[in-house]
């Protein structure tokens, strides 16, 4: 039965991917991309990688869909011609060749088995019980620290797209909805639930799947729903409080990492304090990830008068 399930899931995943790149029309491609994100999240569940599935569900099926649909609409309003989203034969063959070769070699060459044993032995010293969190926030904290800053760099790149005279404007398009309408009702209903779910994912991340990234993404998503209904005012890129929110997570992470120097080594989390240190980092990181992702989706500042 497992084989049947796997076959159907893989077929769907491939179909969604091919339809997203092989068909005509940006809108259809985008919808297939959302469907693809859902199937990939399910594949991660099937593989037991719940942490990744959570991230994929929130990013792949959630935020990216919103971002791409907005882009499609913007292109249309700008009068851009509907260019064919048709991957050329050569890149398609090249991609298939690379994927095929990688798969073939990976199946043929015996695997070295990863680092499960080492991670299991070190887990009691890491301060948390979820091995994924131990890897992300302790064993390989330097990677995660850099990754959290990568998000910020991406936001800077998005903001760089604004024109000089637009820097005074709030980010994103001017969002509004009918007062008391369905959209506004939804925007009042979902965020409280989403905040509970997001906070739960962060809090639970120490012992079970979840964590700052997953929780932060959910918080960003429900925040965006509120923003889409015009319930929250969008910030300007030079807003001090928002910049503090963007910087807080990486800053706390950096300071905690540097404080390790006093405790015996860079990015060192002594076992007795590790849990407190990691949770502190995660709380601030969640805030920053949520703020950064939400601002990334909203885009650069835009003038309030539409052309």
């Amino acid at each position: 039965m497992t084989v049947l399930f796997d076959l159907v899931l893989c077929a769907l995943m491939l179909l969604a991917a091919l339809a997203a790149i092989g068909g005509r029309g940006l809108f259809r491609a985008t919808v297939f991309f959302v469907a693809y994100g859902i199937t990939v999240a399910l594949a991660w569940v099937r593989l037991g990688a719940i942490d990744v599935a959570l991230a994929e569900a929130a990013i792949g099926a959630g935020l990216t869909g919103l971002l791409l649909l907005g882009a499609v609409a913007r292109l249309r309003r700008a009068g851009a011609p509907e260019f064919p989203v048709r991957a050329g034969l050569v890149p398609a063959l090249a991609a298939a060749g690379v994927a095929g070769a990688t798969g073939w070699v990976a199946l043929r060459v015996p695997g070295a088995g990863g680092l499960w044993t080492e991670a299991g032995e070190a887990l009691p010293l890491s301060g948390v019980e979820n091995p994924v969190t131990a890897v992300l926030l302790n064993f390989r904290a330097w990677d995660t620290l850099l990754e959290s800053i990568v998000l910020l760099a991406a936001l800077l790149a998005v903001w760089a797209l604004a024109r000089e005279e637009e820097w005074e404007a709030p980010v994103g398009p001017p969002l509004h909805a009918r007062p008391g309408g369905v959209l506004e009702g939804m925007a009042r209903l979902l965020p409280p639930v989403g905040i509970v779910v997001g906070v739960f994912l962060v809090w639970a991340g120490a012992s079970q799947p979840g964590g700052a990234f997953q929780g932060g993404t959910v918080l960003a998503a429900v925040g965006l729903i509120a923003a889409l209904a015009g319930l929250v005012a969008l910030p300007r890129p030079d807003s001090g409080s928002w910049r503090t929110a963007l910087a807080a997570g990486p800053a706390v992470f950096l300071l905690v990492g540097a404080s390790g120097l006093a405790l015996g080594g860079l990015l060192l989390f002594p076992p007795d304090w590790a849990k407190a240190m990691i949770l502190t980092v995660e709380v601030f990181l969640t805030l920053s990830i949520a703020a950064t992702l939400a601002l990334l989706v909203l885009g650069p500042p835009q003038p309030r008068r539409m052309p």
Binding site: V182, L183, G185, M186, L189, L190, V193
Partner: peptide, 20 residues
């Protein structure tokens, strides 16, 4: 239970919005 309630709410709202 939460999953089901969320799905119900989402589907209802979305159907309404898309139809509109």
């Amino acid at each position: 239970a939460l999953v089901w309630v969320l799905a119900l709410v989402a589907a209802g709202l979305v159907a309404q919005l898309v139809a509109r």
